[in-house]
């Protein structure tokens, strides 16, 4: 009897987790998942704030850099380079919603890397940028 109870309780708990939308994560957890990806690449030796900052602020062959919309200060609100629509701050210190949804992060890295570099970003580049963003104070 009690075994049946435990099993059904377990099933219920598992089902509860499964129906949840992607669980919110912290920016540090997101960074850890990028790092896990990067570790598979030969020669990887960690992320760098300076590299991330310079990547963020420089153009990479296209019209826009990350900073074109997010500005040179990621803790400040940005502005869409084309439509002018206000973009909430990107640095987690200024906007606690940033880097808490893996789905959202993937969506925007895909879009923005394509706009800025005409390709996907490497785990190294993503990790460098997030490491930089995590150091930006409000």
């Amino acid at each position: 009897m009690s075994r049946i109870f435990y099993t059904s309780a377990l099933v219920l708990v598992v089902a509860g987790f499964a129906t949840q939308p992607a669980l919110a994560e912290t920016p540090n957890e997101m960074l850890a998942s990028i790092q896990k990806e990067a570790l598979g690449i030969p020669g990887f030796s960690g992320f760098s704030t300076t590299r991330g900052e310079s990547f963020f602020k420089t153009k990479h062959g296209n019209e826009w850099s990350c900073a074109s919309c997010h500005t040179d200060n990621p803790a400040a609100p940005g502005k869409h380079a084309k439509t002018g629509k206000v973009i909430d701050p990107l640095a987690p210190s200024a906007n606690t919603e940033r880097f808490t949804s893996p789905k959202k992060m993937e969506k925007w890295f895909k879009r923005n890397c394509n706009d800025v570099l005409n390709r996907v970003c490497t785990p190294q580049e993503k990790g460098d940028v997030l490491t930089y963003l995590l150091t930006v104070k409000k």
Binding site: K82, K103, K107, K110, R111, N112, N114, D115
Partner: peptide, 12 residues
């Protein structure tokens, strides 16, 4: 959407 008026606006 991947070429949306000069921007990548793709969705899953």
């Amino acid at each position: 959407l991947d070429k949306h008026f000069g921007s990548d606006a793709s969705l899953d």
